[in-house]
Amino acid sequence: MSQEKPNNVCEENTYKELFSSLAGQLRNFLVFRGSEENQANDLVQDAFIKLWENCKKVVPEKAKSYLYTIATNAFKNEMAHLKVRLKYSQSNTNSNTTIETPEFKMEESEFKRKLENAIASLPVTQREVFLMNRIEKKKYAEIAELLGVSVKAVEKRMGKALKHLRKNIKEFK
């Protein structure tokens, strides 16, 4: 028996499914923008409250960009520093390795620390794009759609971010 798909998100199962699939990435997005973790959690819930209040007007397919827009507006701070510590997954923790390039020579642990600081100091527009790609493995096209910018703009921001990180690692102790 096939049921007709709801064309809005007022149905609790649809709403809950959206929460399960989107809340986590929305939290990440807010953190990338410079929100603290608790605050991000709260803003995610606030965004979903707005979604519920407007559930009749939102078709499920549009819910994602709707939520990202609300979250963006809720946390607008162009200067925000990254507030949350990123972790390196287990796979890469053999500590005594040395990173050596024509420009850098340092221990892996030092490189990682500098890299983290450099990421924290990225301008928000570059950091959100960069981390959505690096941490969440989102494709540029998807990022462009969520942020309402062109793919070309995403490519540029990624390039700028790489330059910023390299410069930052080179220059700062």
Binding site: V84, L86, K87, S89, S91, N92, L162
Partner: peptide, 17 residues
Amino acid sequence: SYQAIAHFTEDLELEPF
């Protein structure tokens, strides 16, 4: 240098939600 940055940022993660 870009390669090193790309390599290590590949491995970053956040606390699970």
